[in-house]
């Protein structure tokens, strides 16, 4: 399945947050969305997963306008792991993950053995199976994040949209979550802050600045010292790590000279 945005603009309180953004996630492609805070990454993602309505342009799923589809249909095809998951009501971890099955259910369908198996499997993948009877509200931020990912996994979708999925996570789970997502072999569109994680996992990236896409291309070609200076206003060195063979970004402090 491919996701495509064509000239999508989003206006929030009379301010145009996203300006004519066009991007495309091809089948099974891991695409990164980069950009500094406030550049419109989350807003653009929300317009794709239909929480916000674009003020201009269209979002296409396999070439079909997404706004003409039912929410149930989109939920069977796109899973979302977003930044904020504040709950006022408590559920057990297992119930939480089972809700990922909701888009596949009709009103009177019961949760079947198959659903429980899928939920357990999703929990096992994020290493949270032992937590299944715990109450969701008692979990730490990182644990919650992993449960939300498990819920998206239980949705069994062809595409995942991730909004800074590694926030709140220590490095072990950052890598674990990215590994889990990568190993699914589904299309992924992920807003990321960490450039090194981007270099590790994304094949293609789009760079947002002030709501416009200012660069796109294969990750290794796009993440350059010049682009980082231009977009993030930070000095750095991009070099190939001899051990991993991957490109690696090392940032420099503005106090570099004084500190040496």
């Amino acid at each position: 399945m491919t996701i495509e945005t064509k000239d999508v603009s989003v206006t929030l309180s009379h301010k145009e947050i996203v300006k004519k953004a066009s991007l495309r996630v091809k089948e099974k492609e891991f695409v990164g969305l980069l950009g500094p805070n406030g550049s419109g990454k989350t807003t653009l993602l929300k317009s794709i997963y239909r929480v916000l309505k674009p003020s201009g342009g269209v979002v296409l799923l396999d070439g079909n306008d997404i706004s003409a589809m039912s929410y149930r249909d989109t939920a069977r095809r796109i899973g979302v792991v977003s930044q904020f998951n504040n709950l006022s009501f408590d559920f057990t971890v297992q119930d939480m993950v089972l809700m990922g099955r909701a888009p596949h259910k009709k009103a009177f369908d019961r949760d079947t053995e198959e659903d429980y198996r899928i939920a357990d499997e999703a929990l096992r993948r994020v290493d949270m199976l032992d937590f299944k009877d715990r109450s969701f509200l008692t979990l730490s931020g990182g644990e919650k994040q992993r449960i939300i990912l498990a819920r998206a996994l239980a949705q069994q979708v062809e595409t995942l949209i991730l909004d800074e999925p590694t926030n709140h996570l220590d490095i072990k789970y950052q890598i674990q979550i990215m590994d889990v997502v990568k190993s699914l072999g589904v299309g992924v569109l992920a807003a990321l802050h960490d450039l090194n994680l981007t270099l590790m996992y994304c094949t293609y990236v789009y760079v947002l600045k002030n709501g416009s896409i200012i660069a796109e291309g294969y990750t290794d070609d796009i993440i350059t010292e010049e682009l980082i200076r231009n977009v993030y206003e930070v000095e750095c060195s991009v070099a190939r790590n001899p051990v991993s063979g991957k490109l690696n970004v090392t940032f420099f402090s503005k106090l570099r000279e004084e500190m040496q």
Partner: peptide, 24 residues
Amino acid sequence: LTQLRTLNTLLLGDEAAMTLGVNL
């Protein structure tokens, strides 16, 4: 009684409900 699953999903918040297929 025909709405129980949707009601559960609503408790997760606006955004989560929508991404789980509920026309909130």
